[in-house]
């Protein structure tokens, strides 16, 4: 507990018209942890992601990633810091091939600047080869290799979810925020994805914050759980402790009423 958290949010607030979607959310994410963010439907989890990744501007509050303020910065800057997110509703680049979706995400491609395209053709071509290899390797992990040349728009819902995840990994994040990554993915592949997360954490020290409704996944695969309800963080801790927390049980039973915590 001596190491500084990789991410801290303090008193984040956001209202849409009359609805206070996020109402003073405060949390820390431990470096190198796999942290689950749970809460009933409408708790403000997705909105919280949007607020800390620059897609929405918070009305109030601060967020720091690895010592740097992130609130008020545009999404692309935050992504380049190494804090990369995926979307609950997938955003496949439909009319682009799967492989281009992947290669797009790679950082440090000099060929993304027009000046380098014209004056440093060797540099970007070389980088392009590396990126292509990485993309193929990652597609392999998610069973997408044979779809590499298909348009992303022809993929099934589950395949798109996998593609979006693989694509986020291409961006070489240090902190990955996943919005319901398992939703719509078959259990075998889902397990593979979780294994891959463990491996990335162990080998590259990547930190994960993932929103998830499946309690079995949360209990077995996260080392910390943060619970949101009505725009606030109402509990956090080890999975087993959170599961028996009175406030959490009440939130699930009394809140939107979408099943219990079990």
């Amino acid at each position: 507990m001596t190491e500084a958290p990789i991410f801290e949010a303090e008193g984040i607030e956001k209202s849409f018209g009359g609805i206070r979607a996020v109402n003073g959310a405060t949390m820390d994410v431990k470096r190198g942890s796999i942290t689950a963010l749970i809460g009933p439907n409408g708790a403000g989890k997705t909105t919280f992601f949007n607020l800390i990744t620059g897609f929405y501007r918070p009305d109030r509050g601060r967020a720091r990633f690895d010592g740097r303020e992130v609130q008020g910065r545009p999404p692309y800057v935050i992504a380049r810091f190494g804090m990369v997110r995926t979307f609950q509703i997938t955003k496949a680049l439909a009319a682009m091939p799967v492989i281009d979706n992947m290669m797009l995400a790679a950082p440090d491609q000099p060929g993304e600047s027009l000046r380098n395209v014209l004056f440093r053709p060797l540099a970007w071509r070389k980088r392009e080869q590396e990126v292509h290899e990485q993309a193929i390797e990652l597609l392999d992990v998610f069973n997408l290799t044979r779809l590499a040349d298909h348009y992303a728009g022809t993929l099934s819902g589950g395949q798109r979810k996998l593609l979006e995840l693989a694509r986020a990994l291409m961006a070489q994040p240090r902190f990955l925020l996943l919005d319901e990554p398992m939703a719509g993915i078959n259990p075998t592949l889902g397990r593979r994805l979780l294994d891959h997360m463990q491996r990335l954490r162990a080998e590259d020290g990547v930190t994960f914050l993932f929103i998830e409704h499946d309690m079995e996944v949360v209990m077995n695969h996260s080392d910390r759980v943060i619970v949101m309800a009505e725009g606030r963080v109402i509990a956090e801790g080890e999975p087993q402790a959170v599961r028996s927390d009175r406030a959490v049980i009440d939130a699930y039973l009394g809140g939107a009423g979408h099943g219990g915590i079990e």
């Binding site: 545009p74 999404p75 692309y76």
Partner: peptide, 27 residues
């Protein structure tokens, strides 16, 4: 030029600006 990484970012912006921004591109 369209076949370079620069052109690829343009097409990503066409497809989904938010996805491009989430991947570090200044759309």
């Amino acid at each position: 030029v369209q076949g370079t990484p620069w052109g690829r970012v343009l097409r990503a912006v066409r497809e989904d600006e938010d996805a491009a921004r989430a991947l570090g591109k200044n759309a």
